[in-house]
Amino acid sequence: MRKRAISTSAIKQQARKAAGVVAAPTKSLKALADNGGELHGPSPNPATNLVIADIALRTGTTIARRAVERAVLGASYSPRKAKSILKGRTITETLLHGALARVAIGSVPGAIAVGGALIAKTLYDRSRARTARAEGAKDLHEMAKDGAQDA
């Protein structure tokens, strides 16, 4: 009995089919638009769809980030004080945190540098836990006062 050889591409295709993965379309967006094909999204203009997607993703990310920040602070503080602390952050702190996140996301060396710095800071704080806890509580108390004044 002769065995039939199966190519790796045929195996991959069968695996995709079994997993329910649909093959990528072979036509480009320009070809679809030229052929009267329909593009996905609320607008027929792909640039508008990109703007809508960008705004939706940024909004979702911001909401998720705020929820995580409140949850982290909520473990030690009341929801009201946590909200005041988050309102009391300075523009400089917000911009610095955003810049560090972009550096960490931008490249592997950036992620290693930022992650390494955070690990070093955590280990430093743990080595002087009592003093760091007092300093952190003082800083958060000041931020909460600033946030309460803004409200």
Rank of each mutant, 00 (worst) to 15 (best):
T62Q: 13
L96Q: 12
A53K: 09
R128P: 02
S78K: 00
K17T: 11
K3D: 01
A129D: 00
E135C: 06
G136L: 03
V108A: 12
A113R: 00
A101D: 01
G136V: 00
D146F: 12
M1G: 11
T59G: 15
T8L: 08
I85V: 10
E135K: 09
A10Y: 06
I63D: 04
H97I: 04
Y77I: 06
A99H: 07
A144S: 00
L29Y: 03
A104K: 05
S43V: 06
K81S: 10
I6D: 11
V51K: 15
A111I: 03
K30G: 05
S127W: 10
R102P: 02
E135R: 12
R133S: 15
T8V: 02
L96M: 08
A104E: 00
Y124R: 10
P109S: 08
P44D: 10
N49C: 12
S7G: 15
N35I: 02
A117M: 11
S78F: 00
L95N: 08
P25E: 01
S107K: 04
P42Y: 12
A111E: 08
D125Q: 14
R16K: 03
A67C: 13
G106H: 04
A18K: 07
A15D: 03
S107F: 07
A148M: 13
S76G: 10
A67Q: 14
V21F: 09
P44K: 07
A56L: 13
R58M: 04
A24C: 06
V51T: 15
R2E: 06
A24N: 08
D54Q: 15
R133C: 14
R128L: 03
S28T: 07
S9Y: 03
A132P: 06
A129S: 00
A33T: 01
G110K: 07
H40Q: 09
L86H: 05
M1L: 09
A24Y: 04
G41P: 13
D54L: 15
T8E: 02
T8H: 09
D146N: 15
V103G: 04
N45V: 07
E135V: 05
G106N: 04
V68Q: 14
K138Y: 10
P44Y: 08
R130L: 06
V108R: 12
